[in-house]
Design a protein around this nucleic acid. Structure first.
Lengths: 332, 332
DNA sequence: GTGAAAGCGCTAACAG
DNA sequence: CTGTTAGCGCTTTCAC
């Protein structure tokens, strides 16, 4: 900026005025400055500016894994809102590791993000999140709540969705329904299992622990688990998959088996309608979660101090065949 | 930092030393400072630090759409490398809009990113990219090259892959093969069409423009296009889909038709192996593209001035059935 | 309208 | 080992 000032023969402050375009500058000087900027290829350093102003026009987004379709859709929605508001987004995947999540959040905080959208990893430590909040950055939780922290939260009503899905299977005559969910430490996993269980109990069907698998799908030996769950005299006639990672793995494993099972998955996925039969799902709107969370965040950033909100988005049951008649899922 | 210094009864610089942990500080002062940091909840402002040091420990990533599986995998790989190197990543989707891409890249530049990974949108203006380079940030292009700019580039060998795929179809007896690709402005689309064409010509099969569709899949009336391509006396017996967006749309449209067509897609996708028959694809390793690009970028950031590289990753043909015997793709 | 001076939070360079 | 001074690139204040 100094160089530009020298080049144009004006003071540094005049250049600043031109660059910001708010104050009035006499046309001839304005012209000279503009030209100097052009020839020197000057660009204002945002961070120097923001160091002075105390804002960074940056928000942070921390979730488990951008490569998961649910989160990648959410990310895109957040990016779109941020772009509209002239903010940039620092994005990171915690890989479901609380320590990495912490490192990321703290490094975002140290960079003075105006706000943070976090899908809290299981076993996250509320303490340091509170320090971030105290340090002045707004925060919105998505997908999972964090107890003990006073921040807006945008969730999908997992329990209700799972319950409705299970009822749907029961309505089609199934009484032995297996459930595959994520690890117990994951909020949505236990919520969905709770919904599953509630539906069974409402229908007078006993909850059977042997039909329930709760583990991270990425490392699970899918077909062994299936063997175990499907073994025995009173084998399940339907499968409820608790998330899209499990759905993909289970469908892949089922392809190579002869079992005729009904199937229902939580969270929709691409090609769910191309399989035969189409896969019935409880769909959640990842885009809406991201958009609403971002809008909430910007409201806070711009000074809204109304009471903390907790938004619960409804799910949608999409019947496509797999839950309405028994499989197989890919005719051979 | 001033407050901490006052609280601990030392100079500001001593605090700086403690925070940075490089210089030696006498234990008692170290202790006092540490405690003051603790009680005051002090956190160093990264950007102030970096303003002084001239680096931001930030890289930017601009691609079309994080929600596209190819790019979301790539993003994850970039994030992982960045995390290892203690850098954060500013991520954004250009939505295939050159103006938005430019706005994003310039705003990243103004924030002084150390480096930039860009999947250049079709019709991108090389001029401003060059100014970014001149301004000192390293740059690596992924997925598509930009002519006239001297920067490392990581590509998938689209042409060769498409050629091999087409040869595969020809090898299975097909002579009328339709090709669906992205808009002409997209580098990979024309490359793949060129590979397709080369294979035809090598086999002495005339290239027929009526069998080629080049348009953005998201807005295309898929089934009308299919109607048109499949009409006529000499209808195609095989479909070559130029990217995973087209694959999904085509497979969906084909589900409702009775045509018996062989199918081969460029770029693998989830569930490609669960469909029946499994979908034969030319797979590209999105993760590897991201990882290699990031590593290249960090090499430049850390001062490597060796000649510009152009990395071409090979594709992999994965035969699963859809190209080896005619469809349908989802038995009914 | 314009400019000089101070300072955002930090580190580099130097002196002690 | 420790402190002082200057300055990163910009905006704010206030005087002209």
């Amino acid at each position: 900026m100094n160089d530009v000032a020298a080049h144009a023969g004006v003071s540094l402050k005049t250049v600043s005025r031109v660059v910001n375009g708010l104050d009035h500058v006499r046309p001839d000087k304005f012209e000279r400055v503009t030209r100097a900027i052009e020839t020197l290829g000057f660009r204002r350093n945002e961070y120097a500016r923001q160091l002075r102003q105390g804002t960074t026009a940056t928000i942070g987004l921390v979730l488990e894994d951008v490569a998961d379709p649910f989160y990648s859709l959410l990310t895109r929605a957040v990016e779109d809102v941020a772009f509209e508001r002239n903010h940039v987004v620092l994005a990171a995947s915690s890989a479901e590791d609380p320590l990495r999540a912490r490192a990321l959040i703290e490094s975002f905080g140290a960079r003075g993000v105006d706000g943070l959208i976090v899908a809290p990893a299981g076993g996250i430590d509320a303490g340091y999140l509170r320090s971030e909040l105290d340090a002045g950055s707004s925060m919105v939780f998505v997908d999972r709540p964090v107890s003990g922290i006073d921040a807006d939260t945008v969730l999908v009503d997992s329990r209700e969705g799972a319950q409705r899905g299970t009822e749907h299977l029961i309505g089609h005559g199934h009484r032995r329904i297996a459930f595959f969910g994520d690890d117990e430490s994951v909020y949505t996993a236990t919520e969905r299992r709770a919904g599953y269980r509630a539906a069974l109990e409402a229908a007078g069907i006993p909850f059977d622990d042997r039909l329930v698998v709760m583990t991270v799908p990425s490392t699970a030996p899918t077909s062994e688990l299936l063997d175990r769950v499907l073994a025995g005299p009173d084998a399940p006639t339907a499968l409820f998959s608790g998330n899209n990672r499990w759905s993909v793995r289970l469908l892949r494993a089922l392809r190579d088996r002869s079992d005729r099972l009904a199937f229902l998955g939580f969270d929709d996925f691409e090609l769910s309608d191309v399989l035969n039969p189409g896969i019935t799902v409880i769909a959640q709107d990842a885009s809406a979660v991201g958009r609403i969370a971002a809008e909430l965040l910007f409201r806070r950033i711009t000074g809204d101090t109304s009471p903390v909100q907790r938004v619960q988005l409804a799910t949608r049951l999409i019947p496509r065949g797999s839950a309405e008649r028994p499989g197989p899922f890919a005719a051979r």
